[in-house]
Amino acid sequence: MSAEAPPAPTANPPALLELDKVRTFYGRIEAVKGLSITVNEGEIVTLIGANGAGKSTTLRSIQGLTKPKAGTIRFAGKEIQNAPPHQIVQMGIAHSPEGRRLFPRMSVRENLEMGAFNRSDREGIEQDTEHVYSLFPRLSERRGQQAGTLSGGEQQMCSIGRALMSRPKLLLLDEPSMGLAPILVDKIFEIIQEINREGTTILLVEQNALIALGIASRGYVLETGRVTLSDRAEALATNDEVRKAYLGIS
């Protein structure tokens, strides 16, 4: 618990999240092989990489859903790699996972309530629900509908909205663009930027590197569980290797 002052990299803003040589396994398969990344307060940081690179596993490790076998994860100065997921949520990390993972037989409204599971301030919850509805007016129209019957875009909105309901300091977004029409993707990414402007730090996982680098300040490129490149987002977007591998531009 005693926060041994982490060696501050530079005189930068304080690191909100720091992964140091994190290794995560599924059985004998090592999905994340000594990953080190940093997310500073107020940033949007993106993890890009091909399918199977270990992006989702990284987010699941941060959330405590798959325990890292080695390495440390520090959030707001505390080591959390051994904390159970429900404590990590209470510390201020929320997750909109790959595949949305809504509760299919609960309404939109009940899904949002689940996002606020550990809160008891009724008024605050009510306010945040309205706030989510104002970010995603579509959800407001569908508030009574079972989440399992929503369209893909609506499910994505509901999943992000649900994650916001815990008032997180850090929001983990796993492929919010997946399976959505381009217009909708633009719309959702605008809202992600708005959420960030409102003060939520965001770690964004995407296969759609172009759009992710478009809104992020920094990015990491993952390949088979390792960081192969890390830089400012604009620099990555113009990096030849990245352009070849992930932007489909030669």
Partner: peptide
């Protein structure tokens, strides 16, 4: 798993 992500013990 989704319940875990919501902070359910």
């Amino acid at each position: 798993d989704a319940a875990r992500m919501m902070g359910v013990d």
